[in-house]
Computed example of a mutant assay.
Amino acid sequence: MKAKLISCIICLLLIGIPAKPADRSTALPILEIVKAVTKKVIKAIDLRIQKLQNKTIWLQNAQKKVENVLSKLKLDEISDWTKKQKDLYQGYYEELAKVKSIITYYQRIKDITRKQTRLVEEYERAWNLFKQDSHFKESEIQYMELVYSGILEESVKNIDQIFLILDSFSTQMSDLKRLEIINNAADQIDSNYDDLTLFNQQNVILSLQRAKTEAEVKQVKQFYGIP
């Protein structure tokens, strides 16, 4: 449902944008969508991790109580006590292992979302510089805008996958399937990030190639923070 909603918002937004020359002073419209949804994901994950960590503390305390009782019993009493209490306390151990496993999943998802955030930050940094670079024509800026829009739209699909994973913890999805989705989302965001950085590097190289003097080359390097 969330995936369809995000996709509909993007479609409506893009349909409503009239075709016109690139405005070097503005950011891509889809950027705010990506930022807002990414922020929502991070907040949701943080809240879930906090709740699970609190639950972990409670379960660990219960586990310690069991271990304290065992330590006070004699060896012959432990066997008899264990038989009686095994079913009662087994749930604590199983639940604790389950909670720790889910926290690991959430931490992995959070890492993927942080990579998404770095992608947005890298886009903003590069795009703001390219729009100020006089070595690029308006038609080239428009082309960059199309490429960046495509990369950002693809990154939204990764967020759709993350929402699917988050929802999976309330369904009967297997750990194997959940891990498959997580790995797929991680691979996709890595690919998007690599595409973005490669495109940025190619544009910087092009700007350097168009510099006509050594002084201008030095100026371009300083502009883009190249040593």
Rank of each mutant, 00 (worst) to 15 (best):
E94F: 01
L96T: 05
W81M: 07
K40A: 06
A97S: 09
Q53K: 15
I45K: 02
I103M: 10
R24W: 01
R108M: 07
S79V: 02
N61H: 10
A27H: 07
A62L: 08
V37T: 04
D23V: 14
Q107E: 13
V41Y: 03
S25G: 14
A19I: 15
Y89A: 00
V41E: 08
Q50I: 13
V34D: 06
S101F: 02
P21G: 01
D46L: 09
K65T: 07
D46P: 04
I17D: 04
K98P: 00
K98S: 13
I102D: 15
K72P: 08
G16M: 08
L75G: 03
K84H: 12
T82G: 12
I33F: 10
K43A: 01
T56F: 00
N61M: 09
Q107T: 12
Y93L: 03
V41D: 05
I30A: 01
G16H: 06
Y93F: 15
D23R: 12
K20N: 05
K72N: 15
Y89P: 08
P21W: 02
N68T: 09
R108E: 14
I15H: 00
L13K: 01
E32F: 03
R48E: 07
Y93D: 02
P18D: 13
P29A: 03
I103P: 11
Q60S: 01
S71E: 15
P21D: 08
R24M: 00
E95N: 05
T56Y: 13
L14G: 01
I33G: 05
A62R: 07
V69E: 13
K39I: 01
D76Y: 14
L28F: 09
I30L: 04
D76K: 08
S25L: 11
Q85F: 15
Y106F: 15
T56S: 02
D80V: 14
R108W: 12
W58K: 02
A44P: 11
S71M: 06
L52N: 15
N61Y: 10
K20F: 12
L28V: 01
